[in-house]
């Protein structure tokens, strides 16, 4: 019987180049924005990434006003962080129907792009990603470090769009955080589109 059962596998703990932190934001209006932001956990192996992902709620099950953020260790998921303040984000805005059809698979694909360093030599420019669950339409964004680095930003945008499987004629825009923070009106101008 002992011979028939397979040997216990030793997992080698596959280790991607970066350690990542997963954050959770829950909109409690009685608290400050900072107080609502919580670090859930960090991981630096593929096994620990999945142990975390498999353990937490899917984005589509979160209450409106909540966010998940995945950022490289040492970068806080806010514009003001030293690594984010000269940067921006590729923003994907979803309609209400897409919460059911696309949100969870788009967010997982985003996580896989980050953890898997999908952006080739420009992966160093990636800071993290955020998913916002909102009644008026959910959003997913990939944050990069430098809005002036055209080559890195456009490469990241093209790869990201391809990985999500978005149709060619659908465009996504990249906005700097400073523009988003200082916008007047409901839309921020795009520095780049793909």
């Amino acid at each position: 019987q002992r011979a028939a059962s397979p040997p216990r596998q030793r997992f080698l703990r596959w280790r991607p180049p970066n350690r990542w932190s997963l954050w959770f934001f829950k909109n409690d209006k009685s608290k400050t924005w900072q107080a609502n932001l919580r670090l859930i956990s960090k991981f630096d192996t593929v096994e620990d990434f999945w142990a975390l992902y498999n353990h937490i709620q899917l984005s589509s099950n979160l209450m409106s006003g909540c966010d998940y953020s995945l950022f490289k260790d040492g970068i806080e998921p806010m514009w003001e962080d030293e690594r984010n303040k000269r940067g921006g984000r590729w923003l994907l805005t979803l309609n209400k129907q897409q919460r059911r059809s696309d949100l969870d698979r788009f967010w997982l694909e985003t996580l896989l792009c980050l953890v898997g360093e999908a952006f080739d030599d420009h992966s160093d420019d990636v800071c993290g990603a955020v998913v916002n669950i909102r009644t008026k339409g959910d959003k997913i964004a990939v944050w990069t470090a430098d809005y002036d680095n055209r080559e890195a930003v456009t490469h990241i945008g093209r790869v990201y769009k391809e990985r999500l499987g978005l149709p060619m004629k659908m465009t996504i825009g990249y906005q700097s955080h400073t523009d988003t923070a200082t916008k007047s009106g409901s839309t921020t101008k795009n520095k780049f589109v793909v």
Binding site: P17, E47, W50, A51, G116, E117, A118, D121
Partner: peptide, 20 residues
């Protein structure tokens, strides 16, 4: 080039015992 982890490689770990 830099080391990448292919998505299918990563997905292959999702339901391994160490990950659940």
């Amino acid at each position: 080039g830099k080391r990448q982890y292919d998505r299918d490689f990563l997905l292959g770990f999702q339901f391994m015992p160490a990950c659940i």
